[in-house]
Design a protein around this nucleic acid. Structure first.
Lengths: 163, 163
DNA sequence: TAAGATTGAACGCTCAATCTTG
DNA sequence: CAAGATTGAGCGTTCAATCTTA
């Protein structure tokens, strides 16, 4: 069945509504707290931080734009805008790609590495304080299972990465 | 203890990292899917829809700006910008508040009511398809418990609503 | 002065169009 | 034409400043 044509689909049950609204609220509160903390302590946005983390975890500390976008689940234009802004602040640099001249490499600069290293401990502490401190080990396992199940149906729905 | 001054806080364990990254990815994928579906099927953003739902659930279908912002967990300036844009499209209207002339009421228009009623079934169907269809009843209960626990620590941290 | 609300600037994200190379 | 990447317009969000009334 490709498409459910029923005019009035089942509404959410009360437990489902509760779970749904709380899930959205948790993400909203967390994102606001983490963004504020990151911005005021390090002058980085969460998007800046995410890019720096991915680059710093790469063995050569440099990647193609599209690979970076895939890892972050971003659209390529979002990545491009983000990287331009970060380039203007000296957090990343660029290099032509020898093999394929359509693309370019994004490289972590010394300033970018310093920024992510300075920001990481505070970020982890905030994630702990605002999230994991409230959760038991079993909660963490449940959350991972639930999240992976949802990612599973969404990815099955459309086979593109980051669709 | 007001503040942890330890220079190197505990990093996340592997299960915690997994749960954290999956949690962020689920929200990102869901938000992207739901936003696209809402936009293309109804011409509404998720923010438009959220406002319309809250207004349509109110007995008089009108509220003060600040009450609306509190319910959505939004800053008042965000609400103000959002409501101006929605007003320009005829989805909401305004009325002076008799008792307190500093504020104004936001009222759902007939067009706004029609829009939210048209959009709701598709939205619910998308939420089911991309999220609840992957979850068991116990998953839903776990998710609610986990989310509420996190909301609890974040709200305890700062007593303001939508801090 | 404080509370309710609006405004403008600056930044972030999405979409569609574009440019360059394969 | 397809793939890698950039650009510009338009909308969404935040922050700080402002305006009006209590």
């Amino acid at each position: 069945m490709l498409c459910d044509m029923s005019p009035t689909p089942r509404w959410l049950t009360d437990p489902e509504q509760h779970a749904w609204r709380s899930f959205l609220q948790v993400h909203g509160l967390l994102a606001a707290k983490l963004n504020r903390a990151m911005q005021s302590a390090s002058g980085l946005s969460l998007a800046d931080f995410a890019v720096l983390v991915v680059l710093s975890e790469h063995p050569e500390r440099r990647m193609r734009v599209l690979e970076l976008a895939r890892r972050l689940g971003w659209e390529k234009s979002r990545a491009s805008h983000q990287l331009r802004r970060m380039g203007e602040r000296g957090l990343v640099g660029r290099a032509r790609c020898g093999e394929d001249r359509r693309g370019s490499f994004i490289a972590l600069t010394d300033a970018g590495l310093a920024a992510v290293q300075a920001a990481a401990p505070m970020h982890v502490a905030e994630v702990r304080k605002n999230f994991f401190d409230a959760l038991s080990e079993r909660d963490v396992a449940h959350l991972a299972r639930i999240s992976d199940a949802a990612i599973g149906v969404m990815s099955a729905d459309c086979p593109e990465p980051a669709c």
